[in-house]
Simulated assay, not measured.
Amino acid sequence: MLKHRIITAVWLIPLVMGAIFFFPVEYFSWALVAVFLIAAKEWGRIIDKRCTVTQWSFTFTIAVLLIALNVLVPTDEIWFKGSLHPIFLAIMIIGAMWWAISLLLVLSFPKSANFWGKSHMLKSMFGQLTLIPCFTALIALKALSSDAMPYYGGALVFLVMLTVWATDTGAYFAGKALGKHKLMPNVSPAKTIEGLVGGLLTTMVVVTGIMMVSPEQELGLIISVTLFVALISALGDLSESMFKRVAEIKDSGTILPGHGGVLDRIDSLTAALPVFTLIYIAFWM
């Protein structure tokens, strides 16, 4: 298993980094459609793991919505005079509201599953609210690149990813070494409070890197934003774990050997990216 994880990471990380930094945003937005359709098919298994018609129906719905977004909002119109396009902004705000609701569902699980566990309609809606704001956030951040700063948008996307990776890595090792108190045993029995604290502390490495590259930034703000994004990313992970637990599936898919599915790799990002984008608009635009 570890060998497969390493091999997958060796080819996947350069591919992701190349797309983030070197793909023009107009190509990046269409490449993302393919990635998110794989994630949508995997979410279809969460809706009903036995019915392929349901899975493909959900995938088709996501395809229509993502293609419509790319057509209705050209990449050169995503930002205008420092403001995010109204459609993108509305989706981002709805996404943030969804993660507030998701937090309540996670905290009240398994009782909350009595409300949504057997409803294909609600689980489909939850999937749309999880995937589409993340899609728009990725494109919005990437579109912040300009001729003067061609890698700026990619750097912002990478910064969020780095925060998520630091949180996950710190949580894994701290949990293994010190984990005694379960974080949310009904949702994800393996996660511990000590692991979460370790993950949050690890993100300070990201803060250090930001301050070295951009020392004019306000330290307190950078620390606060990094910790908040890290916590939100943990919510994304817990939320997917909750939905998979009800669906009785371990991994969302098998397309990434040793890692599971695409959804398993982006679960934390689905929460972190739209929230970070809103924070960026509030404090840096």
Rank of each mutant, 00 (worst) to 15 (best):
M1P: 11
R5W: 10
R5C: 03
R5Q: 00
A9P: 07
V10M: 08
V10S: 09
V16G: 12
M17L: 15
G18F: 10
I20V: 15
F21S: 04
P24G: 03
V25M: 02
F28V: 07
F28K: 03
A34C: 02
A34L: 14
V35R: 02
E42N: 05
R45M: 14
R45W: 11
I46M: 06
D48E: 09
K49E: 15
C51P: 00
F58S: 06
F58T: 08
F60I: 12
T61D: 09
V64I: 14
V64W: 00
V64G: 02
T75R: 10
D76W: 10
D76T: 10
S83F: 11
S83V: 13
L84R: 12
I91W: 05
M92P: 00
M92Q: 15
A96P: 03
M97K: 01
A100I: 15
V106T: 01
L107A: 12
S108I: 13
A113K: 02
K118W: 02
S119G: 09
T130K: 01
L131Q: 04
F135R: 11
F135K: 08
F135E: 10
T136G: 07
L138V: 06
L138Q: 07
I139C: 04
I139R: 07
I139H: 06
A140S: 13
K142P: 07
A143L: 09
D147M: 14
A148L: 15
M149S: 13
M149P: 05
Y152N: 11
Y152A: 15
W165S: 09
W165M: 13
W165F: 10
A166G: 01
T169G: 10
G170D: 06
A171Y: 08
F173P: 03
F173Y: 12
L178A: 11
K180A: 00
P185K: 06
V187D: 04
S188W: 02
P189S: 08
T192H: 00
V197N: 01
T202I: 12
T203S: 12
V206E: 01
V207I: 07
V213E: 11
L219I: 11
G220F: 09
L221V: 15
S224P: 10
S224Y: 13
I232E: 07
A234I: 01
E240N: 06
E240K: 07
M242I: 06
V246P: 07
I249L: 08
I249K: 10
K250L: 01
I255L: 12
G261K: 00
D264Q: 04
R265G: 09
I266V: 13
D267V: 04
S268F: 05
L273W: 05
L273S: 09
P274N: 02
T277Q: 05
I281S: 13
F283H: 07
F283N: 01
W284C: 13
